[in-house]
């Protein structure tokens, strides 16, 4: 989990990528009338193979959406681009992180996309509280891991 690698500040690429994410959210609303929340889309897709309480029933487009997410980096690489990525190597930490992300987004009904992008765009009070909460615990977690516990 300790990877204090410097990453370059990329305002334009990040803004452009953000616009694409927003555009996708608008496509999902305009075409399917749904919130483009990845945790919810994943729940809907997983609900097709495992009994999952409260999972959305419209699974067709959700599976296709996940395939689209998987295809994106492959398309960029096929076009000769590179996908910069540094994933933490502590596997125990990654297992705990994955469990917490899944558990938290299921209990809190959304993640960075559902509450973050879509919820804020709808001016939802619930989403604003969720975003403020997960940003705060995210900042605190990184602070503790990197600057208090340090070099684990």
């Amino acid at each position: 989990m300790e990877m204090e690698i410097q990453t370059a500040f990329t305002p334009w690429a990040s803004l452009g990528g953000g616009v694409l994410i927003g555009l996708s959210a608008v496509m999902v609303m305009g075409i399917f009338g749904r919130i483009a929340g990845i945790s919810g889309i994943t729940q809907g897709a997983v609900g097709g193979i495992l009994p999952l309480r409260g999972a959305p029933k419209d699974r067709d487009w959700r599976w296709a959406f996940l395939l689209g997410l998987l295809a994106a980096p492959m398309l960029i690489m096929a076009a000769g681009g590179t996908v910069a990525q540094t994933v933490p190597q502590n596997l125990l930490a990654m297992a705990i992180a994955g469990l917490l992300v899944g558990l938290g987004t299921a209990l809190g009904s959304g993640c960075t996309s559902g509450h973050g992008v879509c919820g804020l765009a709808r001016l939802s009070g619930r989403s604003l509280v969720a975003v403020a909460t997960f940003m705060t615990t995210g900042f605190i977690t990184v602070f503790l891991l990197r600057h208090v516990l340090g070099g684990v």
């Binding site: 992180a97 994955g98 899944g102 299921a106 809190g108 977690t141």
Partner: peptide
């Protein structure tokens, strides 16, 4: 409480792993 508890847990996991659900999917092919 469910909303706040869930969001808090999510943020902790996000801070440990650096992944939220969408990027975890796009990172899978790598």
């Amino acid at each position: 409480r469910l909303l706040v508890t869930g969001a808090a847990l999510f943020g902790i996991g996000w801070g440990i792993g650096g992944f939220c659900p969408g990027p975890a999917w796009t990172a899978l092919p790598l």
